[in-house]
C-alpha cells in the first residue's frame, strides 16, 4: 500500500510521518507519533475526545485525514502546558475536580482553551454550547463548566495585570 509522507508542525515542533491515504490525523498522532493524549471515543466526530486545534481552528482529529496536516500547525493536549507550568484551564480542572475518569479531559481542555482564546468572557450558556460537541459521561458537566468559567476569570485577571 502506498504511504504518504507528511511534514507538519505539532505543538511548535516540525514532525514527519508516513500515513496511509485513509488514515486519520488522530491515528497518525497516536500511532505514528506516539502522542496518545488525544483520545478516540467514537471515531465519528460525536464525542470530542480527539479534539485538536488545526491552524487555529478546533477540529475533531478523527474527522481529519492525516495527509491534510501537511504544512499546517497542529496543537494537541500535549502542548497546552508550558513545560511543567499548567495552563489555567488545566489548573482549574484540577481545583474544581472537573474530571472523574479523565478520559474526556484532554478533549475538553483543548476545546475550552480554544474557546477562551476566542472569547475571554463567555457566559455559562456560551460555555455549554461551545462544549456541546464534547461528551463526558462521568461529571454531569457541572464542575467542567465551573472550571472553564474560573479559568476565564483568571486569564482575564492575568491579562489586566500584564
Amino acid at each position: 500500500m502506498s504511504r504518504n509522507h507528511v511534514t507538519t508542525t505539532v505543538n511548535g515542533d516540525e514532525r514527519e510521518f508516513l500515513c496511509s491515504p485513509g488514515q486519520t490525523l488522530l491515528d497518525a498522532l497516536r500511532d505514528e507519533l506516539g502522542m496518545t493524549g488525544s483520545k478516540e471515543g467514537c471515531g465519528s466526530g460525536d464525542c470530542g475526545a480527539c479534539t485538536v486545534v488545526l491552524d487555529g481552528e478546533m477540529v475533531c482529529s478523527c474527522l481529519v485525514l492525516a495527509s491534510e496536516a501537511q504544512g499546517r500547525r497542529v496543537e494537541t493536549i500535549e502542548g497546552i502546558a508550558e513545560g511543567s507550568q499548567l495552563h489555567p484551564v488545566q489548573q482549574k480542572f484540577l481545583e474544581n475536580a472537573a474530571l472523574q475518569c479523565g478520559f474526556c479531559t484532554p478533549g475538553f481542555i483543548v476545546a475550552s482553551k480554544a474557546l477562551l482564546d476566542k472569547n475571554p468572557n463567555p457566559t455559562e450558556t456560551e460555555v455549554r454550547y461551545w462544549l456541546a460537541g464534547n461528551l463526558c459521561r462521568c461529571t454531569g458537566y457541572d464542575k467542567i463548566v465551573r472550571a472553564v468559567m474560573d479559568a476565564a476569570a483568571e486569564l482575564r485577571q492575568e491579562r489586566t495585570a500584564a
Partner: peptide
C-alpha cells in the same frame, strides 16, 4: 450503534446540578 443516534446528555442540555 453510535453517539450520534444514541444520544447521551451534552453540556448544553443540562443546568448546574
Amino acid at each position: 450503534a453510535g453517539f450520534l443516534d444514541y444520544r447521551i446528555p451534552v453540556a448544553s442540555d443540562m443546568p448546574m446540578i
